[in-house]
């Protein structure tokens, strides 16, 4: 027992200071892509390099668009572009409450709208999340899981994961929704009491990601459920997920 208490003292304070301060991320971290239509010459190389058809740039420079919902942040487009029209920034704040908000291009505003007042009064300081892994590779689950550890300590915001969907307020979906998981996902949704939310985390859950178009998958959660929040990434950094949740709950400073 004393050992445990000693260890507790030595391990020290480790909770990420977010959202009060921005976290320190790896210098090689690939965050929000920056598009520079001015530099684009519509050569289409980026489109050819993209494994998920997230980017389209073959018509005109001004039509350079990147769908964050499909992007797996592999950086192939950045390498393919000789003009430097695409670069990955260090911005981890990514996510939108509208699917269209994820298509970066002209005049797009990627925005996480807070919940309406009534929902906010309920969920603002108390929200239970039921996570359903619907056919992905397990990486998003791992990064969702990590939020509950003391490194991020989700519960200080009154957010937690629920064992039973009956106790849950939000359904967090990861994975492209495999055909085999579709029914289970629906059943989980039906098992939750109203009012309730759906959060799609990761490229797979938003659009099918790398698996998009494969016959065994359903290309994302909105094929099955009404999604309230999209958090892009493959997998999204835990901080991006936390940012999305807090944005939705209007808890960001």
């Amino acid at each position: 027992m004393m050992r445990a208490l000693n260890a507790r003292l030595r391990q020290g304070y480790r909770t990420n200071p977010f959202p009060a301060e921005d976290p320190v991320l790896s210098p090689r971290y690939a965050g929000l892509p920056q598009l520079d239509p001015g530099a684009c010459n519509a050569c289409g190389e980026c489109e050819k390099a993209c494994p998920t058809q997230a980017i389209s740039a073959h018509t005109a420079p001004s039509e350079l668009k990147l769908d964050l919902g499909r992007c797996i942040f592999c950086g192939e487009c950045e390498k393919a572009c000789d003009q430097g029209a695409i670069s990955f920034s260090k911005t981890f704040r990514m996510g939108a409450t509208e699917r269209e908000g994820l298509v970066l291009g002209k005049n797009t505003e990627m925005r996480i709208k807070r919940l309406n007042d009534e929902m906010l009064r309920c969920f603002g300081h108390a929200m239970k999340i039921r996570v359903v892994s619907a056919g992905g590779c397990g990486a998003c689950e791992a990064d969702v899981n990590v939020l509950e550890t003391i490194g991020f300590d989700l519960s200080r915001f009154g957010i937690g994961y629920a064992a039973s969907p009956r106790h849950a307020d939000a359904l967090l979906v990861t994975g492209p929704v495999s055909g085999n998981m579709e029914l289970a996902l629906k059943k989980t949704w039906e098992a939750m009491p109203d009012p309730k939310l759906v959060i799609a985390v990761g490229a797979c859950a938003i659009s099918g990601g790398i698996y998009r178009g494969m016959p065994e998958v359903r290309d994302g959660a909105d094929s099955t459920l009404p999604v309230n929040l999209y958090i892009p990434g493959c997998p999204p950094h835990p901080i991006s997920i936390l940012n999305g949740l807090l944005g939705l709950l209007n808890r960001l400073p």
């Binding site: 029914l183 289970a184 059943k187 039906e190 098992a191 009491p193 109203d194």
Partner: peptide, 15 residues
């Protein structure tokens, strides 16, 4: 005024 629903017993989504 709330939503009272009837659904299956939670069985882990098993079909």
């Amino acid at each position: 005024n709330k939503y009272i629903k009837v659904s299956e017993t939670w069985g882990c989504g098993y079909d």
